[in-house]
Write a protein that binds this DNA or RNA. Structure first.
Lengths: 125, 125
DNA sequence: TTTATAATTAACCAAAGAGTTAATTAACCG
DNA sequence: CGGTTAATTAACTCTTTGGTTAATTATAAA
C-alpha cells in the first residue's frame, strides 16, 4: 500500500476522516474543533490518529499556534484520485442510460395499460 | 467501515484491485485471466480474495460458465465516490490556479533577469 | 510558580487485511 | 471412470488498523 493513490483511497475509506475533511472545507480548524463532533463516540487520541492518517496522505497540513494545531485542507491528492476514476465515468453513465431506457420502456407499457383500462371503463359505464 | 462509500474507497485502496478493474474495462474476464499479470508475485487464492473484496463492494459481478467465472465491471459504486469528491474539486483547482500564478510570476521575474543579463552582456562586449 | 488547556505519545488489545500452502469442489474431456 | 482445469475453501501467520487508558509535553494564564 505504499503508493500515493492507495494511501489516498485508504484515507478516504473511513467516515470519521471524510467528515473531518468536510469540516475543513469550511476553513481551518484545531484538533479539538475537528474532534468535537466525535468525542461522544471516541477519544481524542483516536482523533489524533485519524488526523495523522490524513496528514500522511497529504490531505491535511497541520501548523502550530501556541498550544493549538490549526489544520488546513489540501485537496490536491484528491485530484489524482479523481483522475484515476475519470475513465470509469463512461461505464457508470452507460448503466445509467440503460436504467433510463428501461424506465422509459416500463413507463410506456404502463401508459398502454392505462389506456386499455380506460377503454374497459368506457365499456363498463 | 460498514457504509458503502467506505467499502468502495477501501476496495480501491489496493493497486492489484485497481489493476483488475482496469482490466475489466476491456471486457469480461475469468478469474485466471484477471490473475495472470499477478501470478508471478502472488498466489491464485490471493486473487480470489481480492476479487471477493471487489464483489462485496459491488464493483464486480461474477457469473458462471461451466468451470469458469466470467467477471464483469460494475462502475456504479464509483459514481457515489466521484459524487463525494466533487465538492473538493474547487479546492484542488484553486491550488492549481495558485501554482499557475506562481509559475507565471517566477517566469516574468526570470524574463526580467534575462533582460538584465542581456544588458550586462551588452556592456561587456 | 502553580494550574489549566491542547494535543501527543506510550503501551496495550482486538479485529481486519493480505498473504501463504494444502485440500476440496466442480465441471469438462479422453 | 480417471485425469485435468478452474476456482474456492480451510487453516494458519503476520501486519496493520482503530480503538482504549494513562502518562507526558508544551504553552498560556492566574
Amino acid at each position: 500500500m505504499t503508493d500515493n493513490l492507495s494511501q489516498t483511497f485508504s484515507a478516504l475509506a473511513d467516515p470519521t476522516r471524510r467528515a473531518m475533511l468536510a469540516r475543513l472545507t469550511m476553513g481551518e480548524a484545531n484538533v479539538s474543533d475537528l474532534a468535537k463532533p466525535f468525542l461522544k463516540s471516541m477519544s481524542l487520541p483516536a482523533i489524533t490518529k485519524h488526523l495523522k492518517v490524513l496528514e500522511n496522505a497529504g490531505l491535511v497540513t497541520k501548523t502550530k499556534d501556541a498550544q493549538w494545531r490549526p489544520c488546513k485542507l489540501n485537496a490536491t491528492p484528491l485530484q489524482d484520485a479523481a483522475d484515476w476514476m475519470e475513465p470509469y465515468r463512461a461505464f457508470w453513465e452507460e448503466s445509467f442510460d440503460r436504467l433510463d431506457e428501461y424506465l422509459k420502456e416500463v413507463q410506456s407499457k404502463k401508459n398502454k395499460k392505462v389506456k386499455t383500462k380506460e377503454k374497459k371503463n368506457a365499456r363498463k359505464s
